[in-house]
C-alpha cells in the first residue's frame, strides 16, 4: 500500500494550488467579493418576496415561514398580470422598432455616400448627450398635443428610434466589406433586399447586443411611462410596482414578489441573445 495517503496534507488539492499562487488567490477573493455584492440584492429580493409582512425588516435570508402568499396576492388583488403584458408588449415593440429603424439608418450612414452624411450622423450623435430628464417635458407636451397620453403609443414613441442604436449599427455596418454589397448588387438584389438579406445577417452580434440593451432599458423604464400614463390599466411593471409604495406605507414583500417575476423576462432575453453575441465574437476570430 502506498504511503502517499498517510502522509498527504489535510488540505484539499485546489487549496494547495491556490496557496502556491498568491496572485490568483487575490483574484479569486476579489471576484468572490464582487459576486457576493452583486448577488445579495437579488437574494434579498427573492427572500423578502417569500416573507410575511411582519418579517420584512428582519435581515434573515431564509424566511421563518416561507410563503407564496405575496405572489398570489399580487395576481389576485392587483392588475399585475396586465402590467406585465403592458411592459412586454411595449418593450418588444420598441425593441423591434429600434432593431429595424436603427439598423436601417446605421446601414445608410455607413454604406451610402451622400452630401451631408457626416452632418446627419453628428446630429444623431448629439441626441445621446441630452439626458432623458430634459426631454420629458417636450415629450409630454408633444404627446398631450397629439392626444397620445394614456396609450401604448404614448409610452413607446420616444424610444422607437435611438441615437445609440444608430451609432452602434453604423459602426458595425462600416466593418462589413463593401464587396458583399457589391456582389449582392450584381446578383440582382434591390437595395432594401441587400440590407435585409445580406448585411443584416452579417451584424447579428450587434443586433443581439442592441436587442438586449433596448429590451432591458424599456422593461425597466420608469420615469416616462409614469408621466405618459395615469390610467392604472396602462401601467407598465415598474410603474405598477411603484404604486405599492404609498405615502405612509410600503408593501415591500409585494414589491419584491413583483420584482422577482419582473426579472424573469430579462433573464430569458439575456440567455437567448448572449449566445448570439458570443457566437459572433467566435466567428469574427475564425475569419481572422
Amino acid at each position: 500500500m502506498s504511503t502517499a495517503t498517510s502522509t498527504a496534507s489535510p488540505m484539499p488539492n485546489w487549496w494547495l494550488g491556490l496557496a502556491a499562487r498568491p496572485g490568483q488567490m487575490l483574484a479569486w477573493t476579489l471576484l468572490a467579493m464582487g459576486a457576493i455584492a452583486m448577488m445579495m440584492p437579488l437574494v434579498y429580493m427573492v427572500a423578502t418576496s417569500l416573507k410575511l409582512s411582519n418579517e420584512v425588516y428582519e435581515l434573515n435570508i431564509i424566511p421563518r415561514e416561507p410563503t407564496f402568499e405575496n405572489y398570489i396576492y399580487i395576481f389576485k388583488n392587483t392588475r399585475f398580470g396586465l402590467w406585465f403584458v403592458n411592459s412586454l408588449v411595449t418593450s418588444l415593440l420598441v425593441t423591434l422598432s429600434v432593431l429595424f429603424f436603427d439598423s436601417l439608418i446605421g446601414y445608410t450612414l455607413a454604406k451610402f455616400k451622400f452630401r451631408g452624411r457626416e452632418v446627419v450622423f453628428i446630429a444623431i450623435l448629439t441626441t445621446l448627450m441630452i439626458p432623458t430628464e430634459m426631454l420629458v417635458v417636450p415629450w409630454y407636451l408633444m404627446a398631450k398635443n397629439f392626444g397620445w397620453l394614456n396609450s401604448y403609443w404614448g409610452i413607446m414613441f420616444p424610444g422607437l428610434m435611438t441615437g445609440f442604436g444608430v451609432f452602434l449599427m453604423r459602426q458595425f455596418f462600416a466593418g462589413v466589406p463593401d464587396d458583399y454589397i457589391h456582389a449582392a448588387r450584381i446578383d440582382g438584389l434591390g437595395e432594401f433586399a441587400i440590407w435585409w438579406k445580406v448585411a443584416m445577417p452579417l451584424v447579428t452580434p450587434a443586433l443581439s447586443a442592441l436587442a438586449i440593451f433596448t429590451f432591458l432599458g424599456n422593461w425597466t423604464a420608469f420615469l416616462w411611462p409614469l408621466i405618459a400614463t395615469n390610467d392604472r390599466a396602462l401601467y407598465t411593471l415598474p410603474v405598477g410596482l411603484a404604486s405599492f409604495s404609498g405615502e405612509f406605507l410600503t408593501d415591500w414583500e409585494l414589491i419584491m414578489a413583483g420584482a422577482t417575476i419582473a426579472t424573469l423576462p430579462t433573464l430569458v432575453v439575456f440567455v437567448i441573445f448572449q449566445r448570439y453575441i458570443i457566437r459572433g465574437v467566435v466567428l469574427a476570430g475564425l475569419k481572422g
Binding site: P177, D179, H182, A183, R185, D187, G188, L189, P201, L283
Partner: peptide, 28 residues
C-alpha cells in the same frame, strides 16, 4: 449592375458567410 448581364469574382470572394455553398451559388 444587375442589368448588364455580367458576373464578378471579388478579391476576397465575398461569399455570404451565413449561407451554404448551394445557397451562395444560387443567390443570384
Amino acid at each position: 449592375p444587375k442589368d448588364r448581364n455580367i458576373a464578378m469574382v471579388f478579391q476576397n470572394y465575398a461569399l455570404y458567410p451565413h449561407m451554404t455553398v448551394h445557397r451562395n451559388i444560387a443567390f443570384g
